[in-house]
Simulated scan of single mutants.
Amino acid sequence: MNKDKLAEGIKIKIIGDSIAAGAGSSMSYRTEDMIFEEDGTKFFRRVAPNSWWGLLEKYLRQNYSAVTVENKGCGGAFSYQIKKHLDDLISREDKLVFLLIGLNDRKRINGMEELKSNCASIVDELISDGKIVVLLTPNPSVHSNEYYSNRIYHTNEVVEILRDVAKSKSIPLVDNYKYIMEYLERNKLVIDDIIYGDGCGNDGLHPSDYVQRLMFQNLIETMQI
Protein backbone atom coordinates (compact mmCIF):
# COMPACT_ATOMS: atom_id res chain seq x y z
CA MET A 1 0.00 0.00 0.00
CA ASN A 2 1.34 3.43 -0.92
CA LYS A 3 2.02 5.21 2.36
CA ASP A 4 1.88 8.60 0.65
CA LYS A 5 -1.73 7.93 -0.33
CA LEU A 6 -2.53 6.97 3.24
CA ALA A 7 -0.92 10.17 4.49
CA GLU A 8 -3.07 12.18 2.07
CA GLY A 9 -6.18 10.49 3.42
CA ILE A 10 -8.49 7.83 2.00
CA LYS A 11 -11.71 6.19 3.10
CA ILE A 12 -11.47 2.48 3.87
CA LYS A 13 -14.57 0.27 3.83
CA ILE A 14 -14.76 -3.25 5.31
CA ILE A 15 -17.53 -5.57 4.10
CA GLY A 16 -18.36 -9.23 4.55
CA ASP A 17 -19.62 -11.53 7.29
CA SER A 18 -19.29 -11.70 11.08
CA ILE A 19 -15.52 -12.30 10.91
CA ALA A 20 -15.25 -9.11 8.86
CA ALA A 21 -17.40 -7.34 11.47
CA GLY A 22 -15.16 -8.40 14.36
CA ALA A 23 -17.55 -10.76 16.14
CA GLY A 24 -15.91 -12.88 18.82
CA SER A 25 -13.71 -10.12 20.21
CA SER A 26 -14.27 -8.71 23.68
CA MET A 27 -16.24 -5.46 24.04
CA SER A 28 -17.92 -6.23 20.72
CA TYR A 29 -21.62 -5.55 20.35
CA ARG A 30 -24.31 -5.20 17.71
CA THR A 31 -25.77 -1.73 17.28
CA GLU A 32 -29.27 -0.75 16.17
CA ASP A 33 -27.85 0.73 12.96
CA MET A 34 -29.34 -1.49 10.24
CA ILE A 35 -27.21 -2.00 7.13
CA PHE A 36 -29.78 -3.85 5.01
CA GLU A 37 -32.67 -6.28 5.20
CA GLU A 38 -32.91 -9.44 3.09
CA ASP A 39 -35.21 -12.49 3.18
CA GLY A 40 -36.80 -11.20 6.38
CA THR A 41 -33.42 -10.90 8.15
CA LYS A 42 -32.04 -7.57 9.29
CA PHE A 43 -28.29 -7.02 9.32
CA PHE A 44 -26.91 -4.52 11.81
CA ARG A 45 -23.59 -2.74 12.20
CA ARG A 46 -21.21 -4.01 14.89
CA VAL A 47 -18.82 -2.07 17.10
CA ALA A 48 -15.65 -4.04 17.91
CA PRO A 49 -12.71 -2.02 19.28
CA ASN A 50 -10.63 -5.13 20.10
CA SER A 51 -11.17 -6.79 16.72
CA TRP A 52 -8.68 -6.94 13.86
CA TRP A 53 -10.33 -3.97 12.22
CA GLY A 54 -10.72 -2.06 15.48
CA LEU A 55 -6.97 -2.39 15.98
CA LEU A 56 -6.44 -1.33 12.38
CA GLU A 57 -8.60 1.75 12.86
CA LYS A 58 -6.65 2.73 15.97
CA TYR A 59 -3.31 2.14 14.23
CA LEU A 60 -4.27 4.22 11.21
CA ARG A 61 -5.65 7.01 13.36
CA GLN A 62 -2.31 7.20 15.18
CA ASN A 63 -0.15 7.00 12.05
CA TYR A 64 -2.31 8.37 9.22
CA SER A 65 -4.74 10.80 10.81
CA ALA A 66 -6.52 11.61 7.53
CA VAL A 67 -7.57 7.98 6.90
CA THR A 68 -11.08 6.91 7.90
CA VAL A 69 -12.34 3.36 8.42
CA GLU A 70 -15.97 2.22 8.23
CA ASN A 71 -17.08 -1.35 8.81
CA LYS A 72 -20.27 -2.72 7.30
CA GLY A 73 -19.67 -6.38 8.05
CA CYS A 74 -22.96 -8.30 8.31
CA GLY A 75 -22.97 -11.26 10.68
CA GLY A 76 -24.65 -14.28 9.08
CA ALA A 77 -24.69 -12.90 5.54
CA PHE A 78 -24.19 -15.19 2.56
CA SER A 79 -22.05 -14.07 -0.36
CA TYR A 80 -25.10 -13.68 -2.59
CA GLN A 81 -26.55 -11.19 -0.10
CA ILE A 82 -23.35 -9.16 -0.05
CA LYS A 83 -23.39 -9.13 -3.84
CA LYS A 84 -27.06 -8.17 -4.05
CA HIS A 85 -26.73 -5.32 -1.54
CA LEU A 86 -23.35 -4.03 -2.60
CA ASP A 87 -24.83 -0.57 -3.20
CA ASP A 88 -25.93 -0.50 0.46
CA LEU A 89 -22.43 -1.41 1.59
CA ILE A 90 -20.22 0.75 -0.61
CA SER A 91 -20.22 4.51 -1.10
CA ARG A 92 -18.70 6.61 -3.83
CA GLU A 93 -16.11 7.99 -1.40
CA ASP A 94 -14.68 4.55 -0.53
CA LYS A 95 -11.24 4.06 -2.02
CA LEU A 96 -9.94 0.86 -0.40
CA VAL A 97 -12.27 -2.09 0.28
CA PHE A 98 -11.41 -5.08 2.47
CA LEU A 99 -13.65 -8.05 1.61
CA LEU A 100 -13.97 -11.09 3.90
CA ILE A 101 -16.76 -13.54 3.01
CA GLY A 102 -17.43 -17.25 2.61
CA LEU A 103 -17.90 -19.01 5.93
CA ASN A 104 -21.70 -18.83 5.84
CA ASP A 105 -21.73 -20.26 2.32
CA ARG A 106 -20.51 -23.53 3.85
CA LYS A 107 -24.15 -24.12 4.87
CA ARG A 108 -25.54 -23.97 1.33
CA ILE A 109 -25.81 -26.97 -0.99
CA ASN A 110 -23.92 -25.28 -3.81
CA GLY A 111 -22.15 -22.93 -1.47
CA MET A 112 -18.64 -23.14 -2.84
CA GLU A 113 -19.74 -22.58 -6.43
CA GLU A 114 -21.85 -19.65 -5.26
CA LEU A 115 -18.94 -18.23 -3.31
CA LYS A 116 -16.60 -18.45 -6.28
CA SER A 117 -19.07 -16.76 -8.61
CA ASN A 118 -20.27 -14.12 -6.15
CA CYS A 119 -16.82 -13.22 -4.90
CA ALA A 120 -15.48 -12.77 -8.43
CA SER A 121 -18.52 -10.66 -9.35
CA ILE A 122 -18.16 -8.44 -6.27
CA VAL A 123 -14.47 -7.89 -6.97
CA ASP A 124 -15.16 -7.06 -10.62
CA GLU A 125 -17.86 -4.56 -9.71
CA LEU A 126 -15.70 -2.84 -7.11
CA ILE A 127 -12.72 -2.61 -9.44
CA SER A 128 -14.88 -1.26 -12.26
CA ASP A 129 -16.06 1.40 -9.81
CA GLY A 130 -12.47 2.48 -9.21
CA LYS A 131 -11.95 0.80 -5.83
CA ILE A 132 -8.79 -0.89 -4.60
CA VAL A 133 -9.92 -4.34 -3.43
CA VAL A 134 -8.18 -6.59 -0.92
CA LEU A 135 -9.46 -10.09 -0.13
CA LEU A 136 -9.00 -11.61 3.33
CA THR A 137 -9.26 -15.25 4.36
CA PRO A 138 -10.89 -16.21 7.67
CA ASN A 139 -9.20 -17.74 10.69
CA PRO A 140 -9.21 -21.51 11.34
CA SER A 141 -11.87 -22.82 13.72
CA VAL A 142 -11.88 -25.74 16.18
CA HIS A 143 -12.75 -29.24 14.98
CA SER A 144 -16.11 -29.41 16.78
CA ASN A 145 -17.31 -26.17 15.19
CA GLU A 146 -15.95 -27.15 11.79
CA TYR A 147 -18.07 -30.30 11.82
CA TYR A 148 -21.44 -29.02 12.96
CA SER A 149 -24.25 -30.79 11.11
CA ASN A 150 -24.99 -27.71 8.98
CA ARG A 151 -21.41 -27.49 7.67
CA ILE A 152 -21.67 -28.95 4.16
CA TYR A 153 -18.25 -27.53 3.33
CA HIS A 154 -15.22 -26.60 5.43
CA THR A 155 -13.08 -23.54 6.01
CA ASN A 156 -10.13 -24.84 3.99
CA GLU A 157 -12.41 -25.03 0.93
CA VAL A 158 -13.51 -21.43 1.46
CA VAL A 159 -9.88 -20.37 1.78
CA GLU A 160 -8.87 -22.06 -1.48
CA ILE A 161 -11.63 -20.27 -3.37
CA LEU A 162 -10.64 -16.88 -1.95
CA ARG A 163 -7.02 -17.55 -2.85
CA ASP A 164 -8.00 -18.50 -6.39
CA VAL A 165 -10.14 -15.39 -6.85
CA ALA A 166 -7.37 -13.13 -5.58
CA LYS A 167 -4.89 -14.77 -7.93
CA SER A 168 -7.19 -14.69 -10.97
CA LYS A 169 -8.10 -11.03 -10.38
CA SER A 170 -4.51 -10.03 -9.50
CA ILE A 171 -5.54 -8.36 -6.26
CA PRO A 172 -3.87 -8.48 -2.81
CA LEU A 173 -4.73 -11.30 -0.42
CA VAL A 174 -4.37 -11.08 3.35
CA ASP A 175 -4.19 -14.80 4.08
CA ASN A 176 -5.17 -15.01 7.74
CA TYR A 177 -5.74 -18.75 7.57
CA LYS A 178 -2.17 -19.42 6.44
CA TYR A 179 -0.69 -16.87 8.84
CA ILE A 180 -2.43 -18.36 11.87
CA MET A 181 -1.76 -21.97 10.87
CA GLU A 182 1.94 -21.17 10.49
CA TYR A 183 1.91 -19.40 13.86
CA LEU A 184 0.38 -22.48 15.47
CA GLU A 185 2.93 -24.78 13.87
CA ARG A 186 5.88 -22.63 14.93
CA ASN A 187 4.66 -22.54 18.51
CA LYS A 188 3.49 -26.16 18.67
CA LEU A 189 -0.09 -25.12 19.38
CA VAL A 190 -3.53 -25.91 18.02
CA ILE A 191 -6.26 -23.38 17.31
CA ASP A 192 -8.10 -24.45 20.49
CA ASP A 193 -5.21 -22.98 22.50
CA ILE A 194 -5.74 -19.40 21.29
CA ILE A 195 -9.30 -19.03 19.95
CA TYR A 196 -10.88 -18.64 23.39
CA GLY A 197 -10.42 -15.66 25.70
CA ASP A 198 -11.92 -13.74 28.61
CA GLY A 199 -15.00 -11.82 27.54
CA CYS A 200 -14.81 -13.18 23.98
CA GLY A 201 -17.37 -15.07 21.90
CA ASN A 202 -15.77 -18.45 22.65
CA ASP A 203 -17.78 -20.50 20.17
CA GLY A 204 -14.76 -22.05 18.49
CA LEU A 205 -15.28 -20.07 15.29
CA HIS A 206 -15.26 -16.35 15.99
CA PRO A 207 -11.74 -15.34 17.01
CA SER A 208 -10.67 -14.20 20.46
CA ASP A 209 -8.73 -10.99 21.02
CA TYR A 210 -5.53 -13.00 20.70
CA VAL A 211 -6.44 -14.26 17.23
CA GLN A 212 -7.85 -10.88 16.25
CA ARG A 213 -4.44 -9.37 17.00
CA LEU A 214 -2.73 -11.96 14.80
CA MET A 215 -5.09 -11.03 11.98
CA PHE A 216 -4.30 -7.35 12.49
CA GLN A 217 -0.56 -8.02 12.48
CA ASN A 218 -0.89 -10.07 9.30
CA LEU A 219 -2.78 -7.26 7.58
CA ILE A 220 -0.19 -4.66 8.56
CA GLU A 221 2.66 -6.88 7.37
CA THR A 222 0.95 -7.92 4.13
CA MET A 223 -0.13 -4.39 3.20
CA GLN A 224 3.18 -2.91 4.42
CA ILE A 225 1.57 -0.02 6.25
Rank of each mutant, 00 (worst) to 15 (best):
P49Q: 04
I82Q: 06
G24N: 06
M181R: 13
Q81T: 03
V211F: 07
G22Y: 00
E182K: 14
S25V: 07
I101R: 00
D164N: 15
D39H: 11
S208C: 07
L96M: 13
V165L: 08
E157Q: 14
M112C: 08
N50F: 05
I12D: 02
L89M: 10
W53V: 13
R106T: 15
D164M: 12
C119I: 06
V134S: 04
N104I: 05
R108Y: 07
H85E: 10
F36G: 08
Y80G: 00
D198T: 12
R108T: 05
L189A: 12
Y153G: 02
E37C: 11
L162K: 02
Y147F: 13
R92D: 14
A77L: 04
I132G: 04
R163D: 04
D94F: 01
V123D: 03
L115I: 06
I35G: 02
V133G: 06
E70P: 03
N156L: 08
P138H: 04
R163G: 04
I10Y: 00
D105Y: 01
A21N: 05
S128H: 10
S144K: 13
D124P: 06
K83Y: 07
T68Q: 14
M223W: 01
D39P: 02
E8M: 10
R186V: 14
D164Y: 05
I161W: 00
P172G: 11
H206R: 11
R108V: 14
N110H: 14
M34W: 08
L60H: 08
S26A: 11
Y183P: 04
S91V: 14
E125V: 08
H143W: 08
G199D: 11
I161H: 01
T68M: 11
S91E: 15
V47F: 12
S117V: 10
N63V: 03
V211S: 12
A120I: 09
S168W: 06
V165P: 00
V142S: 02
D105E: 09
I127E: 10
R106W: 02
V211G: 09
D193Q: 05
S149Q: 09
N218Y: 05
R108L: 15
Q81N: 02
N2F: 01
A77H: 01
L55H: 11
T155M: 09
R151H: 12
I109K: 15
I82F: 07
K13N: 05
Y148Q: 12
E146R: 10
L205Q: 09
I161P: 00
Y196H: 15
